[in-house]
């Protein structure tokens, strides 16, 4: 049998899924990439700039999309999702549905890569922060949208903005004892972007510590503090209260051991990264391993293999930055290519 006829299904068209499909196609195998949204790019499509190099994420997406379109082995199906699947003798039988025209399609695939990304925790569980009550308390992803509109010149300049880190993360009481890994970096980025747009605006980042372990990361955060003049205040805020149409934040400055307050126009919550509910369901149907939270796990001593012919990459495994998602996509592709090359049937 012609091994080049082997096909991998990649679920999710963010950076991880795009990279995985691309590498499989470049190696001469077939890849079918399904993305629920009308466009490829995943969460990156919602970001206005990215750490650690202040790049426009749209550039990365367009480079990858061009490469995917130029590769005859990859088929990108947008506005499409997976509706059912069954394990077959040599892989999986899957049924796909087009979400707009309702059309469906069935196919047999030899391997599956899950690249469905992560979700943000529902931060309205923090009554003390008033998310869902005060319109100017928003999640980090919603704030990216706000940054975009500000960049386009829409919306008034805020006098002051406060960022809260570790909202949900490192909080046993809410069930997420882990650190969400990317929020220290994107919070620094968002705070710095506010200063770029409005140098007069006062920007406060409430933090317990900042975790910047990556190439260029520490320098990135220091620049935001030292050159863009974002004020980092150590302490985990306790309460947000309305005050004359603005928001009063209460916290302790734990470096001095004194209570502090600040009045701002907007509060941005760096919500914990959590697994998507449907990733959990997909992992179950495909027989992929998951951890206690529902993130996909590798089989011991493998990189991105999570079961028999089932692989994963990117945010569905855990919080990861774009570069890491791309690397995992490539690693998952390498596992698939190795499998396709060695199978004799």
């Amino acid at each position: 049998m012609d091994i080049a006829a082997k096909t991998a299904l990649v679920v999710g068209g963010g950076p991880a899924g795009m990279e995985a499909a691309l590498k499989i196609g470049q190696a001469g195998f077939r890849a079918v990439l399904v993305e629920r949204e009308p466009d490829l790019g995943g969460t990156l499509r919602k970001l206005v700039s990215s750490f650690p190099r202040w790049e426009n994420p749209a550039d990365l997406i367009s480079v990858k999309v061009q490469m995917l379109e130029g590769n005859g082995n990859v088929e990108c199906l947008t506005s499409t999702t997976l509706i059912s699947t069954e394990r077959s003798e040599k892989g999986f039988w899957v049924a796909l549905r087009h979400l707009k025209n309702g059309g469906s399609r069935e196919l047999d695939v030899d391997a599956v890569i899950l690249a469905t990304g992560f979700d943000l925790m529902d931060v309205s569980v923090y009554g003390e922060y008033g998310y869902g009550i005060y319109p100017n308390v928003m999640s980090s992803l919603e704030f990216e949208e706000r940054l975009r509109t500000w960049k386009e010149g829409v919306g008034p300049m805020p006098k002051a903005v406060a960022f809260f880190k570790c909202v949900g993360s490192r909080d046993r009481s809410k069930g997420f004892p882990y650190c969400s890994r990317i929020c220290c970096m994107y919070t620094a980025k968002q705070a710095g972007l506010v200063k770029d747009l409005f140098p007069e605006t006062k920007v406060y980042v409430f933090y317990m510590d900042y975790r910047a372990a990556g190439k260029g990361y520490e320098e990135f955060v220091r620049d935001v503090i030292e050159k863009k003049h974002v004020r980092y205040v150590r302490g985990r805020p306790a309460k947000v209260l309305p005050e004359n149409g603005r928001l009063l934040v209460r916290a302790e400055d734990t470096l001095m051991g004194i209570p502090v307050e600040v009045v701002v126009d907007m509060v941005v919550l760096a919500s914990a990264i959590v697994p998507r509910a449907e990733t959990r369901a997909l992992a179950k149907t495909f027989g992929a391993l998951t951890d206690e939270y529902g993130f996909i796990e590798p089989v011991p001593y493998t990189t991105m293999r999570s079961g028999e012919r089932i692989f994963f990459a990117g945010g569905c495994g855990f919080a990861v930055e774009t570069q890491g998602a791309l690397q995992q996509g490539a690693a998952a592709a390498a596992e698939v290519i190795a499998l396709f090359n060695k199978s004799e049937f």
Binding site: A160, K202, Y204, R231, V233, R250, D253, I258, P259, V260, E261, V262, V263, V264
Partner: peptide, 9 residues
């Protein structure tokens, strides 16, 4: 008297 420091002031 409990008066928190107002950072914005």
């Amino acid at each position: 008297i409990y008066t928190p420091l107002r950072l914005d002031e």
